[in-house]
């Protein structure tokens, strides 16, 4: 009976069959050495996505870095998902990944395989929102050893509107109108807030006072949006060493994906 009532052992603490706290240094000496291998790296670069009412643009620079080194001036961060074969013929979904490039590639291939199997099993293309949710699950399933990437997924939804989804490394996701990710995100995102969502922009004709009416965001036109993307990147290139070399843009409409490449400063 005494055993049941004594919730506290003689040491003043109940004991369990697992280590209660960090052992003293004397223990550490015979324990194996700590892992010194770090499985991640940052390959720099920046991506951004903007959705309009009948298109989505995803863009990314093509520089890959390790520290101060430029690995290569052309390593795309934009990937077509689904479609036929390795050329992704007929695909209408684009994934962009920035962060650790090897994880990015692995993630892209996982998602691409899923979308291709979906088509094989169901005989139709996967919708963007279904693909977006599946991507979230793929990321979340590896939350204890995450894919170290910021992903942006773009396409056109079943109503024909531009669809854009952004993710954190463990799968939280949200549908948005615009999002910048990667090294230059902190430079580009405020610009997009102002130019796409018209934050801090007020009716110019309104009288001065406390109640200044905010400008309401209007659906974007494609040509203007492409210019916006170009401006965002040329500015980021000026101020961030990991962004540059080339700008790859993919414009997704109901007719498919159009790819545009333009050079950026290589300094």
């Amino acid at each position: 009976m005494a055993a049941f009532t004594s919730y506290v052992s003689s040491a003043g603490q109940p004991s369990y069959s697992f280590p209660q706290q960090q052992s003293a240094p004397s223990h550490a000496s015979r324990a194996p050495i700590q892992h010194s291998f770090y499985p991640y790296t940052d390959n720099g670069g920046s991506t951004l996505g903007i959705s309009g009412d009948n298109f989505t643009i995803i863009a990314g620079d093509t520089r890959s870095t390790s520290g101060y080194n430029i690995n290569t001036r052309y390593e795309p961060k934009l990937f077509r998902i689904g479609g036929e074969g390795s050329e992704h013929k007929g695909s209408k979904i684009v994934l962009s990944v920035v962060g650790f490039a090897a994880d990015g590639h692995a993630l892209k291939e996982r998602l691409d395989t899923v979308v291709k199997m979906y088509r094989y099993q169901h005989g139709k293309e996967m919708s963007v929102n279904a693909c977006a949710q599946r991507l979230s699950h793929i990321l979340y399933n590896k939350r204890f050893f995450p894919y170290y990437v910021q992903a942006i997924l773009g396409g056109v939804d079943e109503e024909g509107r531009g669809a854009l989804y952004s993710y954190d490394p463990v799968g939280s996701y949200e549908r948005e109108f615009c999002r910048a990710a990667g090294a230059g995100a902190s430079l580009i995102m405020p610009f997009l807030d102002n130019q796409v969502n018209l934050k801090n922009q007020y009716e110019p004709a309104a009288p001065q006072g406390l109640e200044k009416p905010q400008l309401v965001p209007q659906p974007l036109q494609r040509a203007a949006t492409e210019e916006l993307v170009r401006d965002a990147f040329t500015s980021a290139v000026e101020r961030h060493i990991e962004v540059g070399d080339g700008l790859q843009m993919m414009i997704i409409t109901k007719d498919g994906i159009e790819e545009v490449f333009s050079p950026l400063k290589m300094d």
Partner: peptide, 9 residues
Amino acid sequence: KQQSLASRL
């Protein structure tokens, strides 16, 4: 189908 995708991967 699986083997074919695996070969591509």
